[in-house]
């Protein structure tokens, strides 16, 4: 890549092109100003509170729940591919001589120079951050929070331990654990669609919240099957809470949304933790076997 590729007349052409793009995009944004159509969103807004007090959770994990499943996959695959770049899962052909895979050396931590106060400060902070991440996770349906946030907060604790203590990280997550928990999380999320699929035919139908067959919202015709009571109790009742609103009091349940959040959190913990771990220490198969 030579930097002189953008010098001289090519540079001028590039600048003109950028200006055209800029003018085009900014006129379009100016035109959009004040003309944004509301479309389907009022419907979502009207329906969301029936599901979970946290509107965002109903949007992200119910209405667009399948989107989020694949989005979760982006994180999982991102971790997989980043770690592949370091060396996990590089394949060799039988009998064909190839160049050796590019080896990565691990990062050097000088933890000996760390302040004593910081060392004492580390363990409580790590434990409290992990507890906080679990709080965020469990409050997903009722208050701001959810799986992504839990995973990110958790992995910040992991990173903190890594910076403070190096290989003696108190939160000692192994590669196997991270890979397992990440895969388990995504699989859990994917499989939580199964109950709804089996009873109604719709993948990821929110069997506990069950807006459309419970008679809560009228005017629906064509629902093929009604969710059996036992399923509704398994997925709905553990999460039922009392919603006291200005227009009355009624019971609300988030259905499978809190469970999905747990899967999501596991996946994010696995993915981001694995990236941190492998980028700091490198990956070798031998080490993977010994653990």
């Amino acid at each position: 890549m030579e930097s002189k590729a953008l010098k001289g007349s090519r540079g001028i052409i590039a600048v003109i092109a950028l200006m055209i793009i800029f003018v085009g995009v900014s006129t379009s944004l100016l035109q959009l100003n004040g003309n944004v159509a509301r479309g389907i969103s009022p419907e979502y807004n009207a329906l969301a509170p029936y599901e979970a007090p946290n509107n965002l959770a109903s949007w992200v994990y119910d209405y667009r729940g399948f989107d989020t499943l694949i989005e979760t996959g982006v994180i999982y695959v991102g971790a997989l591919v980043s770690v592949l770049a370091i060396g996990r899962g590089i394949v060799r052909t039988k009998g064909v001589a190839e160049e050796a895979p590019v080896a990565q050396s691990s990062m050097d931590f000088h933890v000996s120079s760390l302040n004593v106060i910081l060392k004492y400060f580390g363990i409580p902070v790590i434990i409290l951050i992990v507890a906080y991440s679990l709080l965020v996770l469990t409050g997903a349906a009722t208050s701001g929070g959810g799986g992504f946030q839990c995973g990110v907060i958790f992995s910040s604790a992991f990173l903190l331990g890594m910076i403070f203590y190096g290989k003696k990280n108190p939160l000692n997550l192994s590669k196997k654990f991270l890979i397992g928990i990440g895969g388990f999380g995504w699989a859990l999320y994917a499989l939580l669609g199964l109950p709804g699929y089996l009873v109604t035919g719709y993948w990821q139908y929110n069997v506990g919240a069950d807006l459309w067959s419970s008679g809560l919202i009228s005017g629906v015709s064509g629902m093929s099957a009604v969710v059996p009571d036992i399923m509704r109790q398994i997925f709905g009742d553990p999460f039922r809470i009392l919603l006291v609103l200005s227009d009355g009091t009624y019971a609300s349940t988030a259905g499978i949304v809190p469970l999905i959040n747990i899967g999501e959190a596991f996946n994010v913990i696995g993915a981001i933790g694995l990236i941190f771990l492998v980028f700091a220490y490198g990956y070798t198969d031998e080490e993977g076997k010994s653990k």
Partner: peptide, 27 residues
């Protein structure tokens, strides 16, 4: 229609029939 959300009919009300014109709530 993933997650089993119906479509909103232009006349109001909801439907699960894909051959009717409606705005999809689901993916």
């Amino acid at each position: 229609w993933f997650t089993g959300q119906p479509a909103v009919l232009p006349t109001g009300g909801y439907t699960y029939r894909a051959d009717l014109l409606g705005w999809n709530l689901a993916l």
